[in-house]
Simulated assay, not measured.
Amino acid sequence: MTQSRRMLVLRAVVEDYIRSQEPVGSTSLTKQHDLGVSSATIRNDMAALEDEGYLIQPHTSAGRVPTEKGYRYFVDRLATVMPLSEAQRRGINSFLEGSVSLKDALQRAARLLSEITGQVAIVASPSLAKATMRHVEMVPVAMNTLLAVVITDTGRVAQHGLVVPSMPSADDINHLSSTVNEQCGGLSLAKAGEKVRSIAETAGFEEVKAVAKALADAFESMALDERANELYMSGASHLAHSRSLADLAPLFDALEEQVVLMKLMSNLSEETNASGVGVAIGSESHTPGLLHASVVSSGYGRKAASRDSNLDDGSTTSPSDNEPVAFVGSIGPTHMDYAATMAAVRAVARYLSAFISESGTDAS
């Protein structure tokens, strides 16, 4: 009983510190929360929590603040993420509905998430490695060059130049395009590359064998190109209001390291809790510049959109069902409002899932 009450005290300390950003004392806890015990008992509980590494006392005779371990316990007990209010959901919907392209939607999503949380928002474009091919067009642009325009199920459009020894006839190119679209639709770009190589060796495609091999190379190159994951970032100016100058330089350096950020947030989005949101607190990110920051990330993907028609109805999702093609996330101080940030990240991720699902349908 003592242990469970002690953890209620911890939760109360975390909630109050997030709200006030001032060390929390036993007297204020007694006033703010109905814990059913005296101030002296709460003081003893706080001392025990400090001994166990959940709280720290920054100054003698001052209140206490949560440690990383304290925040981690608090976040892990947020079993369900609160759904956003109807007004917030309508606001997200109307803001993102104005998107004219995938890039525009991702830029808007980053801007919106930053405004909602008051923190840095990062949105990655769908990974080509995880996308499937919807359609390809090959257009001659020079004597020995064709432009392959590839549309994926996520709505991304990728272009690749194909250099060939000699230009086949328009009919032969169209025949190859039709065959590739018929046999490769729904395949990953890597698998599509393998399929196109087998098509190149098929009778009737002798005249376009070089084009088919060049297209197969292009598919495989796109599938392996990690740089194809563009990051859209918004809200870096918010950091100046929440961090000390000493913390800002390494934090901005961390934000510049896009490959490191992409790996961290991508991994987080795949190692989520029951609500489909991953959280790294301070040193858990294994990134020096984020030592005093927390990262919240969620994947967005095809299956989430088809299953979650209400988008933010409070239901939980299984990470294995989600199959994220990219991530959306927020970076803020360790004393961020975790419940609100997790809800906002999840809601924006779900709207992006719906958006790319519709884009993929339109493209097919």
Rank of each mutant, 00 (worst) to 15 (best):
M138V: 14
A304W: 00
C184Q: 02
S94F: 08
T30L: 08
A79T: 09
G289S: 02
M133I: 10
L128K: 10
S61N: 13
H335F: 15
G186L: 11
A223P: 06
R197Q: 05
S85N: 07
V75E: 09
L224Y: 03
G70V: 10
A62S: 15
A109C: 12
A293D: 13
N174L: 02
A354P: 04
V296Y: 00
L290E: 03
A48E: 05
E22K: 13
A274E: 11
H241M: 15
D225A: 08
A212G: 07
G118D: 06
V180Y: 00
R19Y: 14
N93I: 04
G276W: 10
L189S: 06
R11N: 12
T316E: 13
P319N: 11
N144W: 02
A142H: 04
D247P: 03
D16W: 02
L290T: 12
V13H: 06
A214W: 07
Q159S: 11
Y338K: 07
N44P: 01
L128I: 13
T361A: 15
A223I: 02
S294H: 13
E323V: 04
S61L: 12
F327V: 09
M46W: 09
I116N: 10
S177K: 03
R89Q: 15
C184Y: 02
R43I: 02
V37Y: 03
M262L: 14
P319M: 01
E206M: 00
L146D: 08
A158V: 00
D172I: 10
V9R: 10
A121T: 06
L189E: 04
G332Y: 07
L264A: 04
S39A: 13
P168S: 08
T132L: 09
T317K: 06
I18W: 01
H160S: 15
D312E: 14
L106E: 09
V163F: 04
V75T: 11
P250L: 10
E206Q: 09
A293M: 15
S283H: 01
A200C: 08
